[in-house]
Design a protein around this nucleic acid. Structure first.
Lengths: 182, 182
DNA sequence: TTCATGTTTCAATATATTCTGAAACAGATG
DNA sequence: CATCTGTTTCAGAATATATTGAAACATGAA
């Protein structure tokens, strides 16, 4: 039994490390990803000290990471009766986690880029020279594409369970073509 | 005319900077993104020296960035008759660019994580204790989800123009729900 | 082979990001 | 109010990442 427990902790740690390495994919630091992984895989409410201990990180780091995860909306606060400490629990629905990530990244990265691109496009519009035509065309292609991505991710990240439905649709559409696969 | 040219270069540079800042989104360095932006927005074949000059970066950096972009498959080599220098041109189809990025990120980030997760899952399977059940469940939820993502991105990144078609489908599906929007 | 032209590599350096730890803060309780 | 418990902040340190620049490496021409 002690044995099994230790094994489990080890396995959890492997998961945490793998997930941490993925942090870059969704644009957060390794530690922040690890804190999330710990909360997710553990399932229990953990306090700052638990996180510090399990991950061997400083109080400051743990505090910052937890707050950032709260901002992203993928963990939430919890309290134990008769205990003043704050505990944290991770959202357990992977789709909800995914939607939160998509929403956040769109807000932080796609939207600002689209804004900048639109600004440039407007400037060109006024100063129409010959060469500008080709530039404008390429810019437009990019803008149209990013607008599409933004719209798609908005739908994916929408509040309802649409993401799942849409994924199913996508998969269904793809299935019809499976015979033509390479 | 001189005037218009200078304006255009400035606008191009603004585009390049915006795009460079986005580098993190698709997991490459700022400079590499800028090199790509330069080639994309310029449209012409450029050689290493052109890139160095326009972006004010070292030869080594330019060389590494260009090679990496070649690896990603979003720029290609070009040659001018009677000129030994290598020139580079960017893929102009934004969908092709997007597909290349999705393909590459899946390969580098999602696949390894899925591999690690499957390994952990296998280990748990053999050492079934009570507590492990909950762990296994959470792990499975994550694996199922990532498998779905991997499948979806494979379809998106497929060689044909499927990505565009699928996006249209998705958009269509969404349109039917537009009335229920928040 | 030697020279001329162009490309790649990589150790040293510069830059950016993340983390620590102790101090400041908040707010409950006696 | 003083004290106790717990949280947040932030300057400096540690770490990781990106960049330079010069030397090594190719390759073709004479």
């Amino acid at each position: 039994m002690m044995r099994a427990d230790r094994d489990q902790q080890q396995l959890e740690m492997t998961f945490i490390e793998s997930w941490g390495r993925m942090g870059s994919v969704w644009g957060i630091s390794r530690t922040m990803a690890e804190v999330h992984a710990l909360l997710y895989i553990t399932g229990d409410p953990l306090c700052t000290d638990d996180v510090m201990e399990r991950l061997e990180i400083s109080r400051g780091n743990a505090s910052m990471s937890l707050r950032a995860l709260l901002d992203w909306g993928i963990i939430s606060r919890a309290h134990k009766r008769g205990d003043r400490k704050e505990y944290f629990v991770a959202e357990q629905d992977v789709w909800a986690i995914f939607r939160a990530i998509v929403r956040e990244r769109k807000k932080r990265e796609v939207d600002p880029l689209l804004g900048a691109l639109h600004d440039i496009r407007d400037e060109i519009g006024s100063a129409a020279s010959e060469k500008d035509d080709a530039l404008a065309e390429r810019l437009d292609a990019m803008i149209v594409f990013l607008d599409l991505i933004a719209t798609l991710s908005e739908r994916f990240a929408g509040p309802s369970g649409e993401g799942l439905e849409l994924a199913a649709t996508l998969l269904g559409t793809g299935a019809r073509r499976e015979s033509t696969e390479e």
